[in-house]
Amino acid sequence: MEKAEQIMEGCLLGGKLMLRYGAETYRVEDTMTRMSRSAGMQEVSSFVTTTGIFLAFRTKEGQELMQMIRVRERFQDLSKVTSVNQVSREFTHGELTIEETIQRLKDIEHAPMNYPLWLIYLASGIGGAAFSYLMGGSAFDVLPAFIGGLITTVSLVLYQAYLKVKFFSEFLAAFTGSIAAVLMVYSGFGINVDQVIIGALIPLVPGIPLTNSVRDLMSGDLVAGVARGAEAGVSSLSIAAGVAVSLSILYIT
């Protein structure tokens, strides 16, 4: 009996990590089903939405188990999804016991981010700079776009750490980034205000919800797909509202 509960714990931990760090719903369901099937469970059914996981199976002795967990926080960390995928693959092939699997999953859960925070700041600056060149084609605006992208991501992380409100901090970060871009252009540091603002805001694009929403809708997980699409839509709207507020301040004064 201990074993069945351990398998339940392992599957739920793997599913929780995958869902929290940005995997598609289909992949979470598939991983949990495969893991519990390979452990000899029958009548496995898993149901995953964007914010919660249900898993039920029956052991060989006929004992029914069913549990659900709620996933409150969602981050973007695809390297953890890749490592959980690897662990579940090894467990399914019988290379790991359930104790080792749970231990490795807990290690993944407690591990720090794949890249240090300063590298992510730097990358969003570089991404913003390169993207602004792709959009506008003026080489003089690459440096202000770099600074803008840096300011946007730093302020997003700060707002999320202190305010802990998802969409509002995206709104504030978009507002801060575009105000910084406008100020840089007006002090003669850049030329095209459009290009600098686009470069400053592009690190905020909700890439993971957008892609996952399409994927979920296609594989028939309609609840999760629509929910992810709504998340991406509200994120985009709050970014757009941040830009609109800063531009209106600019046009009034």
């Binding site: 973007q76 390297s79 991404g127 792709l134 991501t153 690190p203």
Partner: peptide, 17 residues
Amino acid sequence: FCFIATIAFGIIFNIPL
């Protein structure tokens, strides 16, 4: 520039190196 931008976004989304 596009290559650099995509790699930077890979780092933003925490994709393994």
